[in-house]
Amino acid sequence: MTEPENRCRLVLIVADIADADEQAKIVADALKGGDVASVIVPQYGLDDGTFQKHAEKLVPLIQDAGAAALIAGDSRVAGRAKADGLHLSGNAEALSEAIDKHAPKLIVGGGNAADRHHALEIGEVRPDYIFFGKLDGDIKPEAHPKNLALGEWWASMIEIPCIVMGGTDPASALAVAETGAEFVAMRLAVFAEPARAPAIVAEINALLDEKAPRFED
């Protein structure tokens, strides 16, 4: 598997599947489709104990596929499941506290960057990445125009990598790549039809290989 370091890479957001074994199988299959930089595991409506069980099944298989496993929200679950990092959707203050506590042992990123002002506040605490959009914000085929605009603005001037939430159409990954963002996050685009997930991961990678702009060294 070639390593596409010089273009936008795919980040998967695990879909909301109540059965932990089924969820793990679908994610493992998707990861067979090709390059995935990291996988974010949201808690959705699960109680902490159940989320812990899901995380403990998912983290090793994500890591075995060569991707970073990021747990959304709960540092205790991230620690117990031996995840690579923590994805937070709070404000700059919450991120700053988590960075002080967990970096550099864990990747710490995210942020609730709904506009430029909040994005810059988040940037000041130096997270490992900033996330534009919501983890379940893929409600239309295309990526949200506001997130694309924020990603383009950020990528043009700030070195901290950004992840931009894509839409439900796998082709929306290209619009994100064209902003200069380092990563595109996909959820329903990949997991809406679980049987097709590996093929869709392969398709997104092929699209980015062919058409995504290349980063300068």
Rank of each mutant, 00 (worst) to 15 (best):
A143R: 06
A199Q: 14
L150R: 01
V190M: 09
A192V: 01
R196M: 15
G167N: 04
I163F: 02
R196H: 12
L174D: 03
L150E: 00
W153I: 00
I200W: 10
M186P: 01
V201Q: 09
E182F: 02
W154H: 08
A177P: 02
G167E: 03
A143E: 06
A195S: 14
L150D: 00
G151L: 12
P161L: 07
V176R: 01
A197H: 10
T179N: 03
A173N: 11
M165D: 05
F191V: 12
R187S: 15
A155N: 03
E152K: 15
A177R: 03
A149Y: 06
A181H: 01
L150K: 02
A149F: 08
A175T: 12
P194I: 11
V184A: 05
I158Y: 10
D169K: 09
V164P: 00
I200F: 12
P194T: 08
E182G: 07
E178F: 10
E182I: 03
S172R: 05
N147V: 03
S156G: 09
V184C: 06
M165I: 13
W153N: 05
E159Y: 09
A149V: 09
C162W: 12
D169S: 13
L150C: 00
M157N: 12
A197S: 15
I160P: 00
A199S: 14
L188V: 08
L148S: 04
A195N: 02
M157K: 12
F191D: 08
G180A: 10
A181V: 04
M186Y: 01
G151H: 11
E152D: 15
I163T: 07
N147G: 05
V201R: 07
S172T: 12
A197D: 14
V201E: 13
A173Q: 11
A195F: 05
E178V: 01
T168I: 09
D169N: 12
L148Y: 03
V176P: 03
R196T: 15
G180P: 09
I200A: 13
F183V: 06
A195Y: 06
A171K: 11
P161T: 07
A189M: 06
R196S: 14
P170S: 10
M186H: 04
S156V: 04
G167A: 11
E142Y: 02
P161H: 07
A199M: 11
H144L: 08
E159H: 11
V164F: 04
I158C: 05
G166C: 10
A177D: 05
G166W: 05
N147M: 04
W154N: 06
A195W: 04
A195V: 13
T179M: 02
M157G: 14
I160N: 02
A173S: 14
A192Y: 01
R187I: 07
G166L: 09
L188S: 14
M157S: 14
P198K: 06
R187L: 11
A192R: 11
A192I: 04
A192C: 01
G166F: 04
S172D: 09
A175W: 03
T179E: 04
A181P: 10
E142V: 07
